[in-house]
Amino acid sequence: MNIFRLAGDLSHLAAIIVLLLKIWKTRSCAGISGKSQILFALVFTTRYLDLFTNFISPYNTVMKMIYLGCAYATVYLIYMKFKATYDGNHDTFRAEFLVVPVGGLAFLVNHEFSPLEILWTFSIYLESVAILPQLFMISKTGEAETITTHYLFALGMYRALYLINWIWRYYFENFFDLIAIVAGCVQTILYCDFFYLYITKVLQGKKLSLPA
């Protein structure tokens, strides 16, 4: 565990909690893509099946359980408790266009052709694109609440910090995982445009809105 990995995990945790609190405090999930949140719940579920088969550390187990619990709580708030505020008309990204190709790729390109390994690979690939429905929704409505942009920024930082973590691990532990690294690069690249808007607009105190 290096400092970049820990900072990445905490940034990820912050993102998840910011989103939960935003929905809870405002009693509304307006502007949030329920599809992205379902995809993230699917990502955690398929990746953390090793909770049952493989113990790594108390930190690892606790964080996995928190991520899983928060992911399902978010989906519950969006689709059950605050369903009336869910902006389904703007959440029109076709999630099956992500899940099906990613599932096919996980079958073809993996470290080992076993159920758990394929599901782990699927979760890595899916995570890299799971934010697309949310970004699509923002591009469609042309704006995002500031708190939503903080959520996205923390989520993007998590990925960027993981990239630095992998560079660190490559140099100091001679350790790398090509599947995770390639997917992580793709995921980070998807955030670049958003990072630019966040820095030039939100951090200057302006609301994030896109030109019509």
């Binding site: 090793d50 790594i56 991520y67 390994e117 782990w120 993981y162 350790f175 995982d177």
Partner: peptide
């Protein structure tokens, strides 16, 4: 045997 990095990462 090459273990996947993701196994100890989140």
């Amino acid at each position: 045997e090459q273990e996947s990095a993701g196994k100890d990462e989140l």
